[in-house]
């Protein structure tokens, strides 16, 4: 890592002003797991790391708090994945949040990694992470995944970059219609989680919509009825240490024998956490059944365009989605 200074400031306005002044040479640091990795790889060489964890007083309390709010939850951006994973008060309606947090990375990493940092981490694509390869994301002319080893890359929503979004937590938050509260010198604003992520067709150089000086303060989970169920499932090459090959988060309520409020989110298939309107349309208002779930899974992947080496993701994610739907609706698996 190149030399840098560590800057500790106690208010959000000071941190934000500092970042807005010289964004090219400064980086915000939360848990630092992604940032330190990028610095060690030589992808970036900032002069200054500005520590979010030094923020104190009311600002600090909001960023580290985990509080119930009118039946929903307000999650501080500095809450760790370990805290989310072991948070017993997330009852069944919010199970996917806990399951996703518990599934990411390893115990030691989860003790450091924050919710905000998890959403805003940069892609894990091996071409992007290689210091000598100037890919599309780093201002180069092309995405090397198109012709290279693309076994882990996108099958949906790809182009011109084919990364998959790395955040496990994002998927569960997408299924729960979460939003994020962002501080900036002009005031605070709320962004729906779906609008936080920027597809490469809009701008391949970034994955999120925050500007220099923007700081994520909290993540808001809307209230849920007692009948709501959610779950998160992933398949990995190694059970621990590893990023998923594919993952799903689903949320729905079953009332009067019918599905309502259905959300289907697919991960590690697209450059953004992917919401499947096709699957939701098949499921909404219908009575749960194995046949319905199989149709929804086919619909979810119907527009998939695999690259040379990642066609396996289609049956893998179809299977995961069916399993997740069976699980939240308590319908026994047919086979």
């Amino acid at each position: 890592m190149n030399p840098f200074s560590l800057v500790r400031l106690s208010t959000l306005s000071e941190v934000s002003a500092r970042m807005a002044q010289a964004p090219e040479t400064r980086r915000l640091r939360a848990g630092g797991i992604d940032l330190i990795d990028r610095l060690k790889e030589g992808l970036e060489a900032p002069d200054e790391l500005v520590e979010l964890r030094a923020v104190a007083g009311d600002d600090g309390a909001r960023m580290t708090g985990l509080a119930e709010r009118k039946g929903g939850w307000s999650i501080g951006s500095l809450v760790t994945l370990a805290q989310l994973a072991s948070f017993a008060d997330f009852a069944r309606p919010f199970a996917a949040i806990r399951e996703a947090a518990a599934s990411a990375a390893t115990p030691g990493i989860r003790n450091a990694a924050t919710a905000g940092g998890n959403l805003l981490q940069r892609p894990r694509c091996w071409y992007y992470r290689h210091v000598d390869l100037i890919c599309l994301k780093k201002g180069g002319a092309q995405c090397f995944a198109l012709t290279g080893d693309n076994r882990y890359h996108a099958i949906l929503g790809g182009g011109p970059s084919f990364i998959v979004h790395p955040s496990t937590l994002a998927l569960a938050l997408l299924a729960h219609d979460a939003s994020v509260v962002v501080f900036s010198p002009k005031g605070e604003r709320t962004i729906a989680i779906a609008d936080l992520f920027v597809p490469p067709s809009v701008d391949p150089s970034r994955e999120h919509a925050l500007a220099p000086g923007d700081i994520m303060v909290t993540i808001e989970l809307p209230p849920a009825s007692a009948a709501q169920r959610s779950t998160y499932l992933a398949v990995k090459e190694k059970q621990s240490h590893d990023w998923p090959l594919g993952e799903v988060a689903v949320r729905a309520s079953v009332t009067g024998g019918k599905l309502s409020g259905v959300r289907v989110a697919l991960g590690h298939v697209a450059p953004i956490p992917w919401r499947s309107g096709e699957a939701e349309a098949v499921l909404e208002g219908q009575a749960p059944s194995a046949e319905l779930f199989a149709r929804a899974a086919q619909a979810a992947l119907s527009k998939a365009k695999p690259l040379e080496h990642n066609g396996y993701k289609i049956p893998l994610v179809e299977g995961l989605l069916r399993q997740a739907l069976h699980s939240i609706c308590e319908v026994p698996l047919p086979e």
Partner: peptide, 26 residues
């Protein structure tokens, strides 16, 4: 040296952490 193996695990205030992904100043 990337938080991926755990050989560097230490406890910080009783909590296991990967020392390679922390700064000494932390």
């Amino acid at each position: 040296d990337r938080g991926a193996c755990g050989a560097c695990t230490v406890m910080v205030d009783g909590v296991p952490r990967n020392a390679c992904m922390m700064l000494a100043h932390d």
